[in-house]
Lab assay of single mutants.
Amino acid sequence: NKFNKELQWATWEILNLPNLNEEQVKAFIDSLRDDPSQSANLLAEAKKLNDAQA
């Protein structure tokens, strides 16, 4: 389904953001699992944090 694909994509993207530490990655992945419908928003937040920590 749509959420499953978005969840998989967001998870992959977050795992590959180079500037997030392990705790941050875990927190984003946990949030994705808690509410897959928020995957686009969570991915945007993760990318923003990744850029800020570059």
Rank of each mutant, 00 (worst) to 15 (best):
A40Y: 11
N19P: 00
A10Q: 03
N41K: 12
Q53V: 06
E45L: 10
A46S: 02
W9M: 13
E6I: 14
Q38I: 06
V25Q: 12
A52N: 06
A10K: 03
W9Y: 13
V25A: 13
N41G: 06
A27N: 14
F3S: 15
Q53A: 07
W12A: 14
R33P: 02
A44I: 11
E45S: 08
A46V: 02
E13D: 04
N1R: 03
A27D: 12
N16L: 11
N21D: 07
L17I: 01
W12H: 13
S31N: 12
Q8D: 04
A44W: 07
N16F: 04
S39N: 13
W12T: 12
K2P: 13
L32D: 00
L49P: 00
P18N: 09
W12G: 14
A54K: 08
A54R: 08
L20H: 00
N21W: 07
N4I: 15
L43D: 00
N21P: 03
D51R: 07
A44F: 11
S31P: 01
N19I: 01
L32W: 02
A54V: 09
S31W: 12
N4F: 14
D30A: 15
F28G: 00
E13N: 06
W12Q: 14
T11W: 07
E22L: 11
E13H: 10
F28Q: 00
P18I: 09
K5D: 15
E45H: 08
T11E: 05
D51Q: 11
L17Q: 04
A52K: 14
L17E: 00
E22W: 12
I14R: 00
W12V: 07
Q24I: 03
A27F: 08
A54M: 09
L15E: 14
I14V: 06
A44K: 10
E45N: 06
E6G: 03
Q24D: 04
P18W: 05
A54G: 11
Q24S: 02
L17D: 00
W12Y: 11
W12K: 06
Q24T: 04
Q8G: 03
S37G: 07
A40H: 10
N1P: 15
E22V: 13
E13L: 06
F28H: 01
V25L: 05
L49I: 10
N21S: 05
Q38P: 01
A40G: 08
N19K: 04
D34L: 10
D30E: 12
K5W: 04
E6Y: 13
K5G: 14
S37K: 08
L42E: 01
V25E: 02
K47R: 13
S31L: 12
Q8E: 15
S37I: 06
E13S: 05
D34Q: 10
K47V: 09
N19L: 04
D34S: 11
S31K: 14
A27G: 13
P18K: 09
Q8L: 08
D35E: 06
K26T: 13
L49F: 05
N50A: 05
S37P: 04
P18A: 11
D35G: 03
F3A: 15
D51F: 09
K5Q: 12
L32T: 01
W12M: 08
A54S: 09
P18E: 08
I29P: 00
A27V: 10
I14Q: 01
F28A: 03
D30Y: 05
L42H: 04
D35M: 09
K5M: 02
E45G: 05
L7S: 03
K48S: 10
A46W: 01
I14W: 01
D35P: 01
N50K: 01
S31R: 10
L7H: 03
L43Y: 06
K48Y: 08
Q38V: 05
S39A: 10
Q8T: 05
A44E: 12
R33A: 14
N19Y: 14
P18F: 08
N19A: 09
N16M: 11
N1I: 03
L32R: 00
A52L: 13
E6N: 04
F28L: 04
L17H: 03
N4E: 15
D51W: 09
D34G: 12
L20N: 00
K5L: 02
K2N: 15
A46H: 00
A52D: 08
P18R: 06
A46N: 00
R33D: 04
P18L: 09
A10W: 05
Q53E: 05
L49Y: 04
Q24R: 01
D30F: 06
I29A: 03
L42N: 02
T11Q: 05
A40L: 14
R33I: 14
V25N: 02
A52H: 13
K2I: 15
L32E: 00
E23Y: 10
N50Y: 01
A10V: 12
A40D: 06
A46R: 00
F28S: 01
L7A: 13
E22Y: 13
N21A: 10
I29W: 03
S39E: 03
N19M: 10
A52F: 10
K5F: 03
N4P: 15
T11S: 05
F3T: 15
N1S: 02
N50W: 01
E22M: 11
W9H: 15
S39P: 04
N16R: 09
Q8N: 04
N16S: 08
L32Q: 01
W9F: 11
K48V: 15
A10H: 05
L32H: 01
A54H: 08
K5R: 03
L17V: 01
E22I: 10
Q38H: 05
E23Q: 11
I14D: 02
L42A: 05
D35T: 08
K5H: 05
R33Q: 14
S31M: 13
D30M: 05
A54W: 09
A54T: 10
S37T: 14
K48I: 12
N21H: 09
D35I: 04
N50H: 03
L42M: 08
S31E: 08
K48W: 06
L7R: 01
K48H: 09
K2M: 14
A52I: 12
E45A: 11
A52E: 13
F3I: 15
D30L: 07
N41T: 13
V25F: 03
L49W: 05
P36E: 03
F3W: 04
E22G: 14
E23F: 11
E13Q: 13
S37W: 07
Q8Y: 09
F3D: 15
K47E: 04
T11G: 02
R33L: 15
P36I: 13
E23L: 12
K48F: 09
L17G: 00
A52G: 09
N1H: 03
L15G: 08
F28R: 02
D35H: 08
F3G: 15
S39K: 05
N41S: 14
A54L: 07
Q24N: 02
N21K: 09
P36Y: 03
N16E: 07
E45P: 00
D51N: 12
E45T: 08
Q38E: 05
E22D: 13
E6M: 13
N41R: 13
A52R: 10
A44P: 02
K47A: 05
K2V: 06
L43Q: 03
S39Y: 15
A46D: 00
A54N: 09
F28E: 00
W9V: 08
L43N: 01
K2H: 15
Q24M: 04
A10I: 13
W12F: 10
D34R: 10
D51K: 07
S39V: 14
L17W: 02
N21E: 07
K26R: 10
L20M: 02
L15W: 04
E45R: 09
K5S: 12
